[in-house]
Design a protein around this nucleic acid. Structure first.
Length: 872
RNA sequence: GGGCUCGUAGCUCAGUGGGAGAGCGCUCGCCUCACACGCGAGAGGUCACAGGUUCAAAACCUGUCGAGCCCACCA
């Protein structure tokens, strides 16, 4: 390992080499052992997807946590894998077929599935390869796929168990139907959006020739399937009609008028048409009153044979026709514009049709109750905590989960039917002889994708077998995901985990936000504001992207991202790199292994930087423990750049002693370790040079800096602050007078005893950083006529105005200072003038204000005197 | 309809009871022997608005306005 580094950091040369080395050395792999476990299962990406910035954020957080825990000594395992993504993947392959003019039915089930598998072979796992570019330290040997054999076994076991326990059932119920995908959907696969529509008032004449009733509807075409009209039992307007019947126009059907509590008398006319086959409320009403159920829609959302003359019409065309026909009959009373929520298939956007259908369901009541209990009593907690509230509300209002899908790509439901209508749910596939002998037909449907992903935290660890992995890593530690899939996925994992493992699947749910563009806008192809993470990695490096994402990721809030922020990440990596170059130049044969020098050989800046390092280390630990990656990133950025580089390295340039070398090496070592979870590549490369590491030694395997063994040193911090103040004031003086860097200024310092000692010790440093030529101490102000005066705490610094500077500018400068001091004094006095403040505020707060008054008054006096002396 | 989040410097955001912060952008000066992916110095803010609590509010409470998100089987 060479200790020489190139002038600028080149991520493209470093990252692939280090990643390949890490992976080949097996540094990502974990085996069950006795150490404290730490486990994250990846929010499984779609098998055919590619990496977008949302993944990059999600994975950066997880990798940071895993790397941190691994360094802490935990047995950290990051479980990777992919999801077969039923409808989404099937749709992609169906589109490919469509391009050839074929439908899936043309090729048949077997051939179609072969084609999906082939496509999965070809494009599957791309995202996992791309994750490596980001530096993701997944345990690749454990890669899983929701449709592989071990996971399929878990799915069958879960389905059959739930069926036996009565928690999975087959039922004829109203479900959401996508007429384009031609499958049932669960409630959460339907996106609701308010759309402009119409509320049409229809008259159904009385069977007795009377006026009948007027009903209101936004879906006129469903009237073909009406089997009743319902009114509220207390609604006096319509009371006389209850028990009579009305005539359903166009269908010439006589339908009863019933009274039901579910009707809202305030809506429309107070009378509601009842279409049991196409509306869940209506279905319930039909159940209560024993009404007929007439399905007037086909799988493709055209009107079925039950729709009489309208058979074959597309549903919206039918809506228009029926409205026209009713109008012609004088039965369309009126039409009002109305915006109302319309459900769309979350996969293809088609308007969803509520429809009565035979499907499989999970009875979620008991499962949801258990999940809610686990969240309520904190066995699983949310970060940020507030997200638990919405989650619990949602759990409370859950309907049973429709899990069967009329598609082919997925886990086939292990149910068979015999000729007598009997259902056989079987763990093991019956042989062909049995099938023939018993006349069994297999259920053609597959399971909702989320059914298999619900098992992910334990199916990946070997369940239903009792494996060492399961015993070690279940429950997993933290689930890192966007708040947008808490309902889809987190809820289901909680339910299944609690039910089958008798324990929560994860202790913490860390919700991050969505990645947005620089103006907080959602990224979308149509806006043209989509950022490609791989391109950013190419241009700026993975560390830069990770840093930009993590620095912006406050738990629960969205993350804005723009190229400049990533550029900032690259600059930081380069800054660190160059700090390391400098340190290595200074170091000679010293390495961090030398440890810290004896306390009595430490200079002020040594003690200061060690104190700041200790504070940073504590802040990073605290932030990471709270899953606040942003705070950790900001603390490290500030320490490395503003403290270590801007002050310590500058002061170290004056030093040649061994103590300085040891401190330089130690601080860089610790800083690089603390930063490794966030920026793994540049830190590894630096660390290997710094420690002269061999091929078996990686920063990944080094120890996390211990908390509590720091060097807090308030005295050093206070003294250093005084030196920094002197330097800053002198620099400001130079800037105000536009002095060239080569111009030295002389300083005569008048200081009280304590300040004099501090300044005297720091003269070399101050001089270097502020371009001071000659520094002397004096008992009183110098006799020269024209001097500049800088007031710092505990001292006055006089600078002879030896032709270098303009007297007028100096007067301006002093007046600005005076103005500032007066403002501060006014503020402090104002507070003290308030009797309530003096009486009720804590003593030290009041005293601090009194001290300020005295200090600012002294400053004002000095500045006023100086203005006088210069004749301003 | 219910719920949540946000409104702080030109932009994007931290800050959560005691003197307004960062990154980027902007201005001025510097290739100072780690770094021009840099160094130094600056300009820039009635902390959305109105009340209230408090000795003290950007922060806590109430309301208003504005932006966004989630949930929802009012036909």
């Amino acid at each position: 390992m060479t200790r020489e580094l190139s002038k600028t950091y080149d991520p493209s040369g470093v990252e692939p080499r280090l990643y390949a080395w890490w992976e080949q050395r097996g540094f990502f792999h974990a085996e069950p052992d006795g150490r404290e476990p730490f486990c994250i299962v990846i929010p499984l990406p779609n098998v055919t997807g590619s990496l977008h910035v949302g993944h990059a954020l999600d994975h950066s957080i997880q990798d940071a946590l895993i790397r941190w825990q691994r360094m802490r000594g935990a047995n950290a395992m990051w479980q990777p894998g992919t999801d077969h993504a039923g409808i989404a993947t099937q749709n992609v392959v169906e589109r490919q077929l469509a391009a050839e003019g074929l439908s899936r039915h043309d090729v048949g089930r077997e051939a179609f599935l072969e084609r999906v598998w082939a496509w999965r072979e070809q494009s599957g796992g791309l995202i996992l390869r791309q994750m490596r570019r980001l530096g993701a330290s997944c345990d690749w040997a454990r890669e899983a796929f929701t449709l592989d054999e071990p996971r399929s076994r878990a799915v069958r076991e879960v389905f059959c168990s739930l069926y036996e326990q009565g928690l999975v059932y087959r039922g004829n119920r109203i479900i959401n139907w996508c007429p384009r995908c031609r499958t049932a959907l669960s409630d959460i696969e339907v996106d609701h959006a308010d759309e402009a529509g119409e509320l049409a008032y229809l008259r159904y004449p009385g069977s007795d020739g009377g006026p009948g009733v007027v009903v209101a509807t936004t879906r006129v075409e469903t009237m073909l399937g009406d089997t009743a009209v319902a009114i509220h039992p207390d609604d006096e307007r319509w009371a006389p009609l209850v028990g009579t019947s009305v005539s359903l126009p166009l269908m010439e059907r006589q339908i009863p008028v019933v009274a039901d509590d579910a009707v809202d008398p305030a809506f429309g006319t107070g009378a509601v048409k009842v279409t049991p086959a196409h509306d869940p409320n209506d279905y319930d009403i039909a159940q209560r009153h024993g009404l007929d159920v007439v399905d007037v829609m086909t799988d493709g959302a055209t009107i079925s044979a039950n729709g009489g003359a309208y058979e074959g019409l597309e549903r919206f065309e039918a809506r228009r026709r029926i409205k026209d026909d009713l109008a012609a009959l004088g039965l369309l009373v009126r039409v009002e514009p109305r915006t109302h929520p319309v459900g769309h298939c979350s996969r293809c956007g088609t308007v969803v049709e509520p429809r009565l259908s035979d499907q499989w369901f999970v009875k979620v009541g008991p499962l949801a109750e258990a999940a809610a209990g686990a969240v309520r009593d904190g066995r699983t907690r949310f970060v940020p905590e507030r997200n638990a509230k919405g989650f619990l509300d949602w759990l409370e209002h859950l309907h049973d989960w429709c899990i069967s899908r009329q598609i082919w790509w997925g886990h086939r439901i292990p149910a068979w039917y015999d000729d007598d209508g009997g259902v056989h749910v079987l763990r093991v596939d019956p042989t062909s002889e049995e099938v023939a002998a018993r006349g069994l037909r297999r259920d053609p449907d597959v399971l909702d994708t989320w059914f298999s992903s619900a098992l992910w935290p334990f199916s990946t660890l070997g369940w239903p077998d009792d494996t060492p992995e399961l015993r070690t890593w279940y429950p997993t530690s933290v689930l890192v995901t966007g708040y947008d899939i808490n309902t889809f996925w987190v809820s289901r994992m909680l339910m299944m985990g609690l039910h089958f493992m008798d324990d929560v699947p994860f202790e913490t749910v860390l919700n991050h936000g969505l990645v947005r563009d620089r103006h907080g806008k959602k990224m979308s192809k149509s806006f043209g504001n989509v950022i490609d993470p791989l391109e950013l990695i190419d241009r700026y490096g993975a560390d830069a992207l990770r840093f930009a994402l993590l620095r912006a990721s406050v738990p629960g809030l969205d993350v804005p991202l723009a190229e400049e922020w990533v550029e900032g990440g690259r600059r930081f990596a380069n800054k660190l790199w160059n700090a390391a170059r400098f340190v290595l130049l200074k170091l000679g044969d010293v390495t961090p292994a030398a440890g810290l020098p004896p306390a009595d050989t430490l200079q002020l800046e040594d003690r200061w930087v060690l104190s700041r390092l200790a504070a940073t280390r504590a802040a990073v630990d605290e932030a990471l423990a709270a899953y606040d990656l942003s705070r950790a990133a900001r603390a490290l950025y500030h320490f490395v750049w503003d403290e270590y580089c801007d002050w310590y390295l500058e002061l170290a340039k004056l030093r040649e002693d061994r103590a300085a070398r040891q401190v330089l090496a130690h601080v860089l070592d610790v800083a690089v370790r603390l930063l490794h979870p966030i920026a793994p590549f540049v830190t590894e490369e630096i660390w290997r040079a710094l420690t002269v590491a061999d091929d078996d030694t990686s920063l990944m395997r080094s120890a996390w800096p211990a908390l509590g063994s720091g060097h807090p040193d308030p005295d050093a911090e206070a003294q250093m602050q005084a030196l920094q103040e002197a330097v800053t004031e002198l620099r400001r003086f130079r800037a105000d007078h536009a002095l060239a860097p080569s111009d030295r200024i002389d300083v005569v310092a008048v200081a009280d005893e304590a300040s004099r000692a501090v300044l005297a010790a720091g003269v070399d440093g101050i001089s270097r950083l502020a371009g001071v030529g000659q520094w002397t101490f004096a008992a009183g102000s110098p006799q020269q006529e024209a001097v500049g005066k800088l007031v710092v705490s505990g001292a006055e610094l006089f600078v002879p105005l030896s032709g270098l500077v303009d007297l007028e500018q100096e007067c301006d400068r002093l007046r600005r200072e005076l103005e500032r001091a007066r403002a501060e004094l006014g503020r402090a006095r104002g507070k003290l003038a308030n009797p309530g403040f003096v009486a009720k505020a804590p003593q030290q707060v009041v005293q601090a204000e009194r001290d300020k008054t005295v200090g600012w008054q002294a400053t004002i006096d000095k500045l006023t005197a100086q203005l006088d002396e210069l004749g301003c």
